[in-house]
């Protein structure tokens, strides 16, 4: 998957986790939690969805990489580089 595909994957997950949020103006450089109502359980949903959809196991010590869209895409790009987009 290309970074743009990964961004879309994350966007789709966020839209399911936070269905009341308007994601059209999401700032990729700012942390999710500064822009949206996301608590720790929601954050775990992101990890869980990646696990379910792409069998990606993200170790707990890597969770800080998922703070913003930019950092998430950067972190996942090498992990998902050989995974085809759905």
């Amino acid at each position: 998957m290309a970074p743009s595909d990964i961004r879309q994957v994350i966007l789709d997950i966020l839209s399911r986790i936070a269905p009341d949020e308007d994601l059209s103006n999401l700032d990729d450089s700012v942390s999710f939690r500064q822009q949206m109502e996301l608590d720790s359980m929601d954050f775990l949903d992101i990890v869980m969805e990646l696990r379910k959809q792409y069998r990606v196991q993200i170790p707990e010590e890597d969770y800080p990489n998922l703070v913003s869209m930019d950092s998430t895409v950067k972190y996942l790009t090498p992990i998902l580089k050989d995974t085809p987009a759905k």
Binding site: R16, I17, A18, P19, D20, E37, M41
Partner: peptide
Amino acid sequence: QKRKDLRR
């Protein structure tokens, strides 16, 4: 409730 509440 919000949609998020229903999901949670």
